[in-house]
Write a protein that binds this DNA or RNA. Structure first.
Length: 564
DNA sequence: AGATCATGCGCCC
DNA sequence: TGGGCGCCCTGATC
């Protein structure tokens, strides 16, 4: 597997052990504080031998209030653990870990990220559950009613792996969510941290609209109305849930949890998870204090009282209605739990199942066709899979180690199903950790077979050096949409996008700069810019390959895409 | 090129 | 139980 081969790209790093490192870290910190504000005069005095510096630090009686007596160049100090003798950070496109910290990927002790076995081949990260045969009535129901809907032969996966078109700096803040139009194959909706809603016709690359007056902050989730595909519901951190007409941009607030405006951070409530129940014409939204709210879309009025579905005071970040049995609701949140509910009997403590996680859960989804599997993404760097909601739910069927750490500046990662995969085993998820790809530090978007934990494809483009935490697969076409920082990208399978490119005389890349900044292009019409802008700013961590246009996308191997 | 900032969650007292 | 502090691969801007 090429992933394994990739490992050879990592230089062997031998770090000399500093014999003093165990000593008094408190002192060190105090000294450092002083160092930062110290005077310049003595700058030249101190010399660079790390060991010497160390001794100086420990022995110097740094006076608490006044000036420090010594000035030390911080160059030789590890920026992670503040110790000397090694340094963490990028060296070219390769990140060198701080050896004092546990593995950044699997979080287990005994090795650093570079040596982590999960990094080389993802399937090593799979922790299978012991096979439990319960033979209870739910198993029986599953075998009888659901099993036949799950195809036993896995189809070939088609991986959209080449950037077909992109909108750079479309949003003025990072992208938070994406949604494909239910009937128009070329429309992609995107929400951002500022509450703006983007409508992009990626078939005619230049056609794009941004509605900026719907919400005032983070657009956390949106869904199309099943009754009318011109209407979108959106939940926002401004505490409102709205219904918007895409044609006119007219928006109606259906729920406002902060009717009295800002009364301080303790009273402000935000809306996160949201989903719809078409049968009952309900919008379900969950807030930042553990409650679920329901709104009837026929009367546009609240239905019932809010129900506490997660620990009081914690965010409920995700809701999902079971596609096969719409009375089943899945919720997940910051209390480290995923819960399954029957919305006909919604009361606190009445959940059908609680699925415990080690850390905050970013997302939890039923499988898109039969609704019988569950995939969750948690910030403990694990994707968890339950193969059947009718089976034993005590432990997940598999845990897949995957780098999608929490970072306050990134939209939380979510593993998303491929809605077209009849075997319900393909999932996309962005990767946090970077890898050295021909001299570039890139963060790929991973396609994972959750039935085995195998990494099917890692999709990246040398021009996209930012992390892509938001990804969505098209419900009908072989298209992947991804949101990376403020930009949106549409990926198609390589062959196909070549055809499309030949057929069309369209520009693929649009730079949509919301600010009045001239730096991009020459101040002329945005739409006249092209690929140069696409590449421009990038390459911070990139080593060599600057000017050339390398192969766009790599997948582990071509054979992998086929034959299952 | 380097400094600055934005600002969520875990953990510790 | 709650406030305060610290943070490992960010990204944009100046």
């Amino acid at each position: 597997m090429p992933a394994r081969a990739r490992r050879t790209l990592f230089p062997e790093v031998v770090i000399e052990r500093d014999s003093d490192t165990e000593k008094s870290s408190d002192d060190e910190e105090e000294v450092e504080d002083d160092v930062v504000e110290s005077d310049d005069q003595e700058e030249d005095e101190v010399e660079v031998d790390a060991r010497k510096v160390k001794e100086a630090e420990v022995s110097s009686p740094a006076n608490k209030k006044g000036k420090a007596h010594i000035t030390i160049s911080l160059k030789k100090v590890c920026k992670v653990c503040k110790r000397t003798g090694h340094q963490a950070g990028f060296q070219g496109p390769t990140y060198i870990d701080c050896p004092m910290k546990p593995c950044f990927l699997c979080k287990l002790p005994g090795h650093t990220t570079v040596d982590c076995p999960h990094r080389a081949a993802m399937e090593f990260g799979v922790i299978p559950a012991s096979r439990k045969r319960t033979n209870n009535s739910l198993d029986y129901v599953f075998e009888r009613q659901v099993r036949h809907r799950v195809p036993s032969i896995k189809p070939e996966f088609v991986i959209p792996d080449e950037v077909n078109c992109a909108v750079i700096r479309y949003h003025s803040r990072r992208v938070t969510c994406l949604e494909f139009h239910p009937t128009n194959n070329n429309i992609l909706l995107s929400g951002d941290k500022k509450g703006q809603l983007g409508v992009w016709d990626f078939g005619k690359v230049h056609e794009k609209t941004v509605y900026s007056n719907i919400h005032t902050c983070l657009l956390n989730n949106m869904k199309f109305s099943p009754a009318n595909d011109g209407t979108v519901y959106a939940a926002s951190s401004d505490g409102t849930m709205s219904s918007t007409d895409l044609e006119t941009g007219l928006s109606t607030p259906l729920l406002d949890l902060n009717p009295n405006g800002w009364q301080g951070p303790n009273t402000w409530t935000m809306l996160y998870g949201m989903d719809l129940n078409a049968e009952k014409s309900l919008v379900l939204v969950a807030d930042s204090s553990g409650f679920l709210h329901m709104v009837d879309t026929r009367s546009n009025s609240k239905k019932g009282n809010p129900v506490l579905i997660h620990k009081k005071g914690t965010k409920v970040v995700g809701l999902h209605i079971n596609p096969f049995q719409p009375d089943l609701l899945l919720s997940c949140g910051n209390d480290h739990f995923v819960r399954i509910w029957d919305i006909r009997r919604l009361e606190p403590e009445s959940c059908l199942h609680s699925l415990p996680h080690k850390r905050v859960v970013n997302s939890a989804y039923f499988s898109p066709l039969t609704g019988s599997k569950i995939v969750t993404t948690s910030i403990d760097n694990r994707i968890r899979v339950w193969d059947s909601i009718f089976g034993n739910l005590d432990t997940p069927s598999r845990e897949i180690v995957h780098s999608h750490d929490f970072n306050r500046h990134l939209t939380p990662f979510r593993a998303e199903w491929d809605p077209k995969d009849p075997s319900e085993s393909l999932v996309v998820v962005g990767r946090y950790i970077s890898e050295n790809y021909n001299g570039l530090a890139l963060h790929p978007i991973d396609f994972i077979d959750i039935s085995t934990g195998q990494l099917i494809a890692e999709v990246m483009d040398p021009n996209i050096t930012t992390i892509s935490p938001v990804n969505k697969l098209h419900p009908r076409d072989d298209v992947l949409a991804s949101g990376s920082s403020r930009s949106l990208f549409i990926w198609r399978p390589k062959e196909k996008s070549d055809e499309v490119a030949q057929e069309k005389d369209e520009r693929k890349i649009v730079v949509c700069d919301n600010r009045k900044n001239k730096k991009f292009g020459d101040g002329s019409d945005d739409d006249d810019d092209d690929d140069d802008d696409f590449k421009s700013k990038k390459g911070k961590k990139s080593g060599k390959s600057k000017g050339k246009k390398p192969i766009l996308v790599t997948t582990p191997s071509s054979s992998k895409k086929k034959k299952f």
